[in-house]
């Protein structure tokens, strides 16, 4: 089992936010993650990451002089990492059914808060991408949905034996889903072109 990346701190049916165990430890954009931990797995694609102060009410104060690099600032202020945290958000793309089967639609309930979140394995990624239905969920992932979709497809393609064929099949599915939005379709296709 891959080591966990973080823990769910906020979840809705279609989204989740997790805080990372390590500063700057968020998975990359479009990566598939799994929230599991005693409950059936919920699969999600990373839609964003944020590193900032622990206390959302307070901004970080400026440190260091104009000549100091980042490393120098951190060395002068060893307490800083403790004041920071990295969180990432992900949009749900599917979940495991009672028999462990892959369901490419929304689960009944959000991921439990404090559940551990880990990266999806290559096997899980391939299983999710075996049918293009999950793309419909990706396309509703918010204002950056197109970027997320393209990133997710690029990453998934890397795990496929024939990545070009995979991208074509996925592109065909997108062409159907975005038949009425050709500009979005073209934008995504430009980003995944092998």
């Amino acid at each position: 089992m891959t080591a966990s990346l973080g823990r769910v701190i906020e979840a809705s049916i279609d989204r989740l936010t997790a805080v990372c165990h390590t500063l700057d430890g968020a998975p990359p954009l479009g990566a598939l993650v799994v929230a599991e931990d005693d409950a059936p797995a919920i699969y999600a694609a990373v839609t964003g990451a944020l590193t900032g102060g622990i206390d959302p009410g307070r901004r970080l104060a400026p440190r260091g002089g104009p000549g100091d690099g980042r490393a120098a600032v951190l060395a002068q202020n060893p307490q800083i990492p403790a004041l920071l945290q990295t969180t990432f958000t992900a949009t749900v793309t599917g979940h495991a059914g009672p028999g462990g089967e892959m369901r490419r639609y929304l689960p009944d309930a959000p991921a439990p808060v404090y559940a551990l979140v880990r990266a999806a394995t290559a096997v899980e990624t391939a299983a999710l991408c075996a049918e293009p239905d999950y793309l419909k969920l990706l396309l509703t992932a918010g204002p950056l949905a197109d970027e997320v979709t393209a990133a997710c497809l690029r990453r998934a393609a890397a795990h496929q034996p024939d990545s070009r064929a995979f991208l074509i099949t996925s592109g065909r599915a997108l062409a159907g889903l975005l038949a009425a939005e050709p500009d979005r379709l073209h934008a995504i296709l430009r980003r995944i072109r092998p």
Partner: peptide
């Protein structure tokens, strides 16, 4: 070829 393969039979 990539875009044509995608559009053929879809769009």
């Amino acid at each position: 070829g990539f875009l044509r393969a995608i559009f053929a039979g879809t769009a």
